[in-house]
Nucleic acid binder design. Structure first.
Length: 250
DNA sequence: AAGCCGTGCAACCGCGGATCG
DNA sequence: CCGATCCGCGGTTGCACGGCT
């Protein structure tokens, strides 16, 4: 049986979001919380489909999102997690709490794929595996740091993270609008690509502790990443990741 | 100066799993 | 149990921009 398209409504708007639409969406979520996306367009009066609203929120407006350049640590974590998990971007994103799956996916497709191809051409497999091993150590360190940050954030916060999250979201959008009005003479698309970009430093300040890592029991992967004692015992995992049909990678 | 092309990224599409009545 | 609906995910597209000719 065919599933009807998600947005059958007449005159559903598509394309880039305007700051006004962002404001409407953020203030609605501020009041009602995320979820029940189906009702969002109706309740807000936005001519957007529910999926579009959810996507805009999760990939752009949600507080605590880190945008801009990926660090070396993040890059290496993505490479190794991709080798282990495949293109499961949401799972990978859960290890990089402040990055969105879309961001990671884009970064992989536009930067890392190419990088790895070049890299792979320049290395024999033995060299590659040795390099993977050292990179894994770096990734483990990055993950430890990320998780310790997460724990600190969680312990220092009250049990009502949603309030601060939404407040920060409003702050974020206010910042966006401020820049937007400042650059209002520019074209819409230009403003879209510049002012929405919150710097790493700013996003650090906006960090809200909205992560999925904290509190989640250790998976095999995490156990493996944390196991400093005998990484060689897990060589099979590395071998697995190197063999496991990652045509995109190799 | 104008056109072309490659790149990066926001957003859309369609599928599958989860949930609800 | 089953069909309908909702939500999340991954793949893909389209557009803006910058560099090059």
């Amino acid at each position: 049986m065919g599933r009807p398209p998600c947005c059958q409504t007449i005159s559903v708007k598509k394309g880039p979001w305007t700051p006004e639409e962002d404001i409407i969406l953020v203030s609605y979520i501020h009041q009602n919380g995320p979820g029940n996306w189906r009702s969002v367009p109706h309740n807000t009066g936005l001519s957007r489909c529910s999926k579009s609203c959810r996507l805009r929120w999760t990939n752009y407006l949600r507080p605590g999102i880190k945008r801009g350049q990926f660090s070396d640590h993040e890059e290496k974590m993505i490479i190794h997690l991709q080798a282990l998990l495949g293109n499961r971007w949401a799972a990978i994103a859960s290890y990089l709490p402040r990055r969105t799956d879309n961001d990671i996916k884009n970064y992989w497709n536009t930067h890392l794929k190419k990088k790895l191809k070049v890299y792979e051409n320049g290395l024999s497999k033995g060299q590659w595996e040795r390099r993977v091993q050292t990179d894994i150590e770096t990734a483990k360190q990055a993950l430890k740091e990320a998780l310790s940050l997460t724990k600190q954030t969680h312990t220092s916060e009250s049990n009502t993270p949603s309030c601060s999250s939404y407040a920060l979201s409003a702050e974020n959008i206010a910042r966006l609008l401020k820049n937007w009005t400042k650059n209002s003479t520019r074209s819409n698309s230009e403003s879209r690509s510049t002012q929405n970009c919150v710097s790493v430093e700013e996003s650090s300040k906006l960090e809200t502790g909205v992560e999925s890592v904290g509190g989640v029991p250790l998976t095999l992967l995490e156990t493996w990443l944390f196991d400093d004692v005998a990484p060689q015992n897990h060589q099979h995992l590395i071998n697995f990741s190197l063999q496991d049909g990652h045509q995109g990678l190799f």
